[in-house]
């Protein structure tokens, strides 16, 4: 299982992530009363980018983007996609730290390009990360304390055992908080501060072209996948759906159907997120930080207090 997952889960994540990028463009277009690009448009963009001749600012510039993509791929290996997971060592704490490699790699690369636009973008990116990490850490600590484990796989298994999507009512409040910060994690519109195209020439990626741009798009797709998949895994029970697959238990169909159920849940989450994205203008960085440190943090804090008291 582990060996299969090692190959399959990055591929699923990559393809799904790219489709999600396309889907989000399509849905935004439809909300704007436009026809929109085909759903597979990001694949075309990546192919085009690969066929272009890129520029580089030295080895460290290349190293950063490679580190970023590698880190995000390894991150995907930790996520249980249905019953598919490859790594579990270190649990959610390791996951949290590996989440850092993606933005960190981009930041190194962008800064090695010696473009102030990139630097401003990176500064905003880290500030936004700090802003949403505060509620995110509270949420994840609530989850870890409630299940009394740091293993992501165990958390999903415990939810599957009850057959329900959300296994304990105590995690409803942290779930709401996670949903509020989801656009910030994905870098969607109200929090599209990092790569503000109109202000700072798309920020950290201002100097990326050709294959660097292609790698960035792949990384971005994976990041989108990870952000939503984490929500589905922690709060929506991963690949289980009210014990629907219990009759098939033991066959290979369970694994395949679980993946489908997982992806369906992800699409649902993405849809709801996109409706926010399409109608909101962009926050300034201070506004984003103030918002993220006010409501989501307050809700997550209340959730953690409840969990800590009950435990």
């Amino acid at each position: 299982m582990n060996i299969v997952a090692l190959i399959v889960s990055p591929l699923i994540a990559l393809i799904t992530g790219l489709f999600f990028l396309g889907l989000s463009r399509k849905i935004s277009a439809r909300i704007h009363w436009r026809y929109g690009p085909p759903v597979y448009q990001p694949f075309i963009d990546v192919m085009r980018a690969f066929s272009q001749k890129s520029i580089t600012h030295g080895n460290f510039f290349d190293f950063g983007i490679i580190l970023s993509l590698t880190g995000t791929i390894v991150l995907v290996l930790f996520l249980p996609i249905g019953g598919l997971w490859a790594l579990n060592t270190g649990g959610l704490i390791m996951f949290l730290y590996l989440m850092l490699l993606g933005p960190f790699g981009i930041a190194l690369s962008g800064a090695a390009a010696a473009n102030p636009n990139s630097s401003i973008g990176i500064s905003r990116n880290f500030l936004l990360a700090l802003a949403y990490e505060v509620p995110l850490l509270l949420i994840l600590l609530a989850v870890m304390t409630d299940y009394n484990t740091i293993s992501l796989v165990e958390i999903v298994e415990k939810q599957a055992a009850t057959g329900m999507a959300i296994s304990s009512w105590r995690l409803v409040i942290p779930g709401i908080a996670y949903f509020l910060i989801l656009p910030a994690i994905l870098g969607l519109r109200p929090f599209e501060i990092t790569g503000a195209v109109q202000e700072i020439a798309s920020g950290p990626i201002a100097e990326f072209g050709g294959k660097h741009m292609a790698f960035y798009t792949l990384q971005h797709a994976l990041q989108t996948f990870v952000g939503i998949a984490l929500f589905v895994d922690i709060f929506l029970g991963g690949g289980t759906l009210f014990g629907l697959l219990n009759s098939l238990a033991g066959t290979v169909w369970v694994d395949i159907l679980e993946i489908f159920i997982f992806l369906l849940k992800m699409v649902l989450v993405l849809f709801i997120g996109l409706f926010v994205n399409a109608v909101y203008p962009r926050f300034r960085i201070e506004q984003a930080m103030q918002y993220l440190w006010k409501w989501p943090t307050l809700i997550a804090f209340v959730g953690l207090v409840i969990v800590a008291i009950i435990n």
């Binding site: 085009r48 272009q52 636009n117 798309s202 100097e207 990326f208």
Partner: peptide, 9 residues
């Protein structure tokens, strides 16, 4: 539209 010539064709 993109912001920088590096990403454009």
């Amino acid at each position: 539209p993109v912001a920088t010539p590096r990403q454009a064709n």
